[in-house]
Design a protein around this nucleic acid. Structure first.
Lengths: 210, 210
DNA sequence: GCATTTACTTAACGGTGTTAACTTAACGAC
DNA sequence: GTCGTTAAGTTAACACCGTTAAGTAAATGC
């Protein structure tokens, strides 16, 4: 029974209702395993109603990612309180890994699943805003270390450094998420792997810290 | 029109026919996007025939992975000819990355896609055989470096070292495969990222090479 | 020569994302 | 007040999916 015209606020509210229900299901059971009918049932609507707010299933996923990328960036921003730039950089790595390992399905959705490339043009997030863009936050933190003259002198490309740090932490986390139960490998403790990776990154990137 | 009894060899031949067709399709379009009917059409059979040789779609995927894990291990084995253990270790990293970046969809299937954990019990491959098990090859190569006394002295766990190296290279490759077209990040050259990762790993893990 | 088995096929089932067609409630105009 | 019109839903339906059941034809064992 459809009551009539909704305010923009009401429409937005329903949008986030859909997003939240979908995220819950996607995260616990995987995107492919969740059906539109199921999402709809959760919020007490019919499946087709979702199409009044989103073009298709992928649009729902995209909206979720938008929200969650922002949430990740926001939560990581707390590390900016740390004064020493190197400590700050390390804390960012641990914070990122903590998110990945605490919400593995979430992380898979955001950084491991096959995905349409994100385009800043089509996102509600602001690129190059540390509060909304986690990569920019990393880059900022790396830049601070750079400005403090702590990197080895041949390292002059802040993007490159940031991307290698990201790759290192992402590598540890994504292997853990996808392969931890794989019996081919005699896995060391995840915390030991993460810590060694961080140590290696620090030792490999910073000047000798006599 | 069914001609009658097939020899074991003929059955095996059809199995590999299915595997090859499925791999071709999986690799170019992704597992989810490929249908059983499509695989069957490729080889001129009906979809249901596949079920005479494989329990389900996942079993086909598993069989592909089995074959390809072996192929990867085999191809990487050539690096064993390199004499210096550190050079050998680096060559293994580059060889692995070369595979990942040359056959990204292939790599995604093997190491990035959500997957049922591999169990040595259920595989035709032999664990702990460097010719069939790429992880064991890595571990062997890392162990040689360890035995040569080249790692920092606090590093005593060969599995841990191997897993961090794997994570580093995997991190670079998987971010490239999934995110290279993502406009949020101003990506540095993939070869620069890979090389810096390798340098960082070497510098972070080996003793000072004075 | 005939039942059985093997290797296949077609038909069908339940479920999917999505679209089309329909329903009902609220609004603006008169 | 009533009468279109429109918004916000619904149900029905489509084409397709992985998979299973039932059917079919050819070669074998006896």
């Amino acid at each position: 029974m459809p009551p009539k015209p909704k305010t923009e606020a009401e429409r937005q509210q329903l949008r986030t209702l859909i997003i939240d229900a979908a995220r819950d299901l996607f995260v616990t059971r995987g995107v492919e395993a969740v059906t539109m009918r199921e999402i709809a049932k959760r919020i007490g609507y019919s499946a087709t109603s979702i199409y009044l707010h989103f073009a298709d299933k992928e649009a729902v996923l995209r909206a979720i990612l938008d929200v969650d990328m922002l949430a990740l960036a926001t939560s990581l921003n707390t590390i900016l309180q740390i004064e020493d730039p190197v400590e700050r950089m390390q804390a960012l790595g641990y914070g990122y890994a903590d998110f990945a390992l605490s919400f593995p399905n979430h992380y898979r959705l955001m950084f491991m699943a096959e995905r349409i490339p994100c385009d800043p043009e089509k996102s509600s997030l602001q690129k190059n805003n540390a509060e909304q863009d986690a990569y920019f936050l990393l880059k900022t933190v790396v830049n601070d270390v750079y400005l403090a003259g702590r990197f080895k002198e041949e390292l002059q490309d802040v993007d490159l450094i940031a991307q290698v740090i990201w790759a290192g932490v992402h590598g540890v986390c994504s292997l853990e998420i996808n392969m931890a139960s794989d019996k081919w490998v005699n896995w060391a403790d995840i915390s030991a792997r993460l810590q060694l990776m961080q140590t290696v990154l620090i030792r490999g990137l910073l000047r000798e810290s006599t």
